[in-house]
Structure formats: structure tokens, C-alpha cells
Amino acid sequence: MSAATAHHDEAHGHEPSYAQQTKSNRLGLWLFFFSELFLFGALFAARFALWGNTRPELSQVLGLIVTSILLVSGYFMYRAEVAIAHDDRKTFLSSLLAAAFLGIVFFVGVVILEWNVFGLELNAFGVEWFGRLKPRDGVYGGVFFAMTGMHALHVLSGVILILFVWNNGRKGHFSPEQHWGVEATALYWHYVDVIWVFFYPALYLIGHLA
């Protein structure tokens, strides 16, 4: 028993401190972001290789709305991070929920409305609310669904991360000094936002209608 305890103490001495581990984590996360640039960059390159100076016909209003929603959710994520740094747990938790909710709205906007997975139709306020582009519509369908799909996957994983953080925050985890989990999730969320800032014009704005 005493040998086991001694072993445990020895092992404990080899664990890096929170500050040191966070330093490593931060570098690792940024390297991961840099790595992901090549993933999104390859999709971006595929868009210009296959579409050139053209674009498919998409609902401009819908695109603008989902983009705005995603950007606003970034604000709430930022607010959550600042709140935990100031030990304001109430704002922290409510902002996380707001960010996750807007993330889900964006995801629904892309998958249900833009992708139109249920094949619906609605014309209100002079806007087509359900997309017409289908996955099998040649390179336009291919690239559009690949880019929005890969991005939506990241949004979905971001929402799940935010909800995990919220759940742990609710249980009293995280402190103004130690909240790497919040910081990492916030960075990831902003990163996914910024990717969309490049994807949105590439899909909706650049080029003339095909």
C-alpha cells in the first residue's frame, strides 16, 4: 500500500502544472486551426477550380440571414468567455446558451432551409425559404454541399462543445483563473465563424450566375 502511495506521489510530480499544460494546449489548438486551414483551403480551391467565375442561383436573403446569425452567436460566445474571466457565472451560462441556440438556428437554416432535406416549399415576404439546389446538380451541387456540409459539421461539433461547457459550468466547474475549456471552445467557435466569412462570399456572392 505504501509503495503504491509513493508511486502515486512520484507520478504526481510528473504531471505538468495547469499553467504549463494550458500553454501547450493553446499552441496545440492553434496548430490544429492552421491544419484545418488546409482542409477548408482545399475546398475553397475546389470551388474556384470547378466553378471559376460563376455561382449557382441561391437565395440571397437566406444566405445573409444565416450568416448574420452565426456572427451574432460569436458575440455571445465572446461574452461568455469574458463573463467567466470576471466570475460572472450567470452571464456566462446564459451567453453560452444564446451562442449554442444561434448555432443551432444557423445549422437548421443550412440543413432544413438551404439544403431542403425534407423537400418543402414556401414563398413568403417575396422570398423562397427552401433551397432548390440538389446534391446531384453537377459540380454546383457537389461543391455547394461539400463546402456547406463540411462547415455545418464543424458548427454542429462547436454547438456540442458549447453545450458540454455549459453543462460543466452549471455544475460549478471553471474559475476566472482556470477555464481553458471555455477558452478553447470560444476560439474554436470564432474559428468556425471566420471560415464562414470566407465561404459565404465564395458560395453566394462571387462570380456571375451560371
Partner: peptide, 21 residues
């Protein structure tokens, strides 16, 4: 590695879902 991942995913998707690249 990310770019080959994209090319392989695209090939899989082209076969299964019919996305055209």
C-alpha cells in the same frame, strides 16, 4: 494531410451521394 483527406472524402461522396467533383 488535410488536402488528401479532402480529395478522398470527395471521391467517397461522389460514389455514394452523387456529389459531382
Amino acid at each position: 494531410t488535410q488536402t488528401v483527406g479532402v480529395s478522398l472524402t470527395m471521391a467517397v461522396a461522389e460514389r455514394v451521394i452523387g456529389l459531382n467533383f
